[in-house]
Amino acid sequence: MLNGSITSRELCPFFPPPRAAAGCRRIMQQFILDAFVTAATEVFETMMGRKVVVGSPYVVTAAICEQDVNSMVGLSGGLPGNVIVGVDRKLAIDFTENVIGHATDTIDEQVIDAVAEIANMIVGAAKCKLTQYKLSMSLPSVICGRGLTINFPGNVRPVCIPFDLEGAKLSLCVGLYDESEPSEKCELPEIAAKPSRGPVLAFDNK
């Protein structure tokens, strides 16, 4: 057991309990997901003073960029993979205006940089809650537009977590390879990737 003394409830009390419905697939340990949920909540509550409501997480076979601006950060170390932070247009613009005073109604360079920084802070804060994995993170990349399909390596079961920030939308897609014992992993419902008209981006971290 990697960290038997810490439960997901202690780390993140608002995170929905694991579900064990028929047909569920085993995924990474819940405290790993909780680290990202807590980090995302901290970033938006601290930087914007927004109330953050966490939705129900689900497993996907491939991640569809469902938000207007999506920033991806790679992780290496004990949990290799990628984390995608997606924000809708409203949240991207509101955040940029809130933190640097840049008022705009378009997704411009400042907004893109701000979303990259959101991802950097969320993944950075989560990384610090997962020190036992000795993680290193890449610089964030930003993908603008909805519908791009991101395929992960076959050994990764990405988990998507939706958030509501007073009407604005945030989504996290955590696709990390957890090498720990399957018996320690939580179970979540799996949602097949929706057909996408957009291009497909594939990762292979072997």
Partner: peptide, 25 residues
């Protein structure tokens, strides 16, 4: 964002006077 104890110690040893973890207000 580096908030681990080892990181703080390394920073202090490098001559850093204070440490602020992102995100901050």
């Amino acid at each position: 964002t580096e908030s681990e104890k080892d990181s703080v110690l390394k920073a202090i040893q490098a001559g850093v006077n204070d440490y602020l973890v992102k995100p901050f207000d």
